[in-house]
């Protein structure tokens, strides 16, 4: 796609804010950028109003860096903390009404494919656990059953952090919160299992205390969604306010939770493996050579 839309109108460059000039001249558009180069280029994400030390922000930042073609990516979000940061990025952001994000993304993906044909346009939904597993549950699942080709990322902070700490479907059983003083009575929803049943081609869990893994998972999910089918990533992004985690201990908590109940997992269909290995050189998914038959 043409990168003209991120450039200045001739003659206006010198009047643009420094951040804008840096983005056009030293941003990642049209380049191959990786997490290891962070700090040496202008990032797509700008300043945002999220809380200090928020793990969700860190995940969003890493996810946006990891987009394989950021100039051809559109993010979709909904109410919740995450949209405060996702909307402060130099790529288009569409705000769906609460719970509508996967429905909006379905229409958007289809429309983009009609308009741009075979040129890939990546649609990435990033929404919280409430928007995705509770209020937007039906639309999320139906988009998967319909095999809509876009990526769905759940920013799972296991609470309604934006509205004072109510339990969500993704909150763990017995968890006491400010607005759930007796503790949650039910188990955490198995969205990973449902994603597999509903036909997602790539499903992964990830915790942002491993930036390179976040990058790898996001890239694979977005690429699989281009051709094969829906992809789903569930990311543990703790709410340090509602769970009272000191900001300098957020990564310690992420590591503890990862070791305990949020281990990295990856599910990928054979079709998606073949696609990634053939088109994008993912060697780990190449078919293994047949083992030599033992001598008789």
């Amino acid at each position: 796609m043409s990168l003209d839309y991120v450039k200045f109108t001739p003659g206006f460059g010198k009047f643009m804010p420094k951040e804008y000039r840096d983005m056009v001249e030293h941003g990642p558009f049209g380049k191959k950028i990786s997490v290891s180069q962070v700090g040496m280029f202008k990032e797509i994400l700008e300043e945002h109003p999220m809380c200090a030390g928020c793990a969700m922000t860190l995940f969003i930042r890493l996810a946006i860096i990891a987009f394989p073609n950021p100039e051809d990516t559109i993010t979709v979000g909904t109410a919740g903390c995450g949209r405060l940061a996702i909307s402060q990025a130099a790529i288009p952001f569409v705000y769906g009404n609460y719970g509508d994000q996967n429905g909006v993304a379905s229409g958007l993906t289809r429309g983009l494919r009609l308009r741009f044909g075979d040129k890939p346009k990546d649609v990435v939904v990033m929404a919280g656990d409430g928007g995705m597993a509770d209020i937007g549950f039906a639309q999320t699942l139906h988009s998967w059953f319909r095999k809509e080709k876009f990526t769905t990322i759940m920013l799972d902070n296991e609470v309604y952090g934006n509205t004072g700490g109510q339990e969500s479907g993704m909150t763990n059983r017995n968890q006491v919160l400010k607005m759930a003083p007796l503790g949650k009575k039910f188990e955490k929803m198995d969205m990973l299992g449902m994603a597999k049943v509903a036909g997602c081609a790539y499903v992964a869990t990830v915790v942002p205390n491993n930036p390179r893994r976040v990058e790898s998972v996001i890239k694979k999910a977005v690429l699989v969604a281009r051709e094969i089918g829906p992809s789903y990533i569930q990311a543990y992004t703790s709410c340090n306010i509602e769970y009272a985690i000191p900001t300098d201990k957020v990564m310690e908590d992420a590591k503890t939770v990862e070791d305990d109940r949020y281990k990295f997992s990856e599910y990928i269909t054979d079709e998606a493996k073949e696609y990634l290995s053939q088109l994008y050189g993912y060697k780990e998914y190449l078919p293994k050579p047949a083992t030599a038959v033992g001598k008789q």
């Binding site: 997490v35 290891s36 962070v38 700090g39 040496m40 202008k42 990032e43 797509i44 994400l45 700008e46 300043e47 945002h48 999220m50 200090a52 030390g53 928020c54 793990a55 922000t57 860190l58 930042r61 890493l62 205390n209 930036p211 990564m251």
Partner: peptide
């Protein structure tokens, strides 16, 4: 640089 939640805050 990779773990800061703020963009372009810790640079290299």
């Amino acid at each position: 640089t990779q773990y800061c939640p703020e963009a372009n805050t810790i640079l290299y």
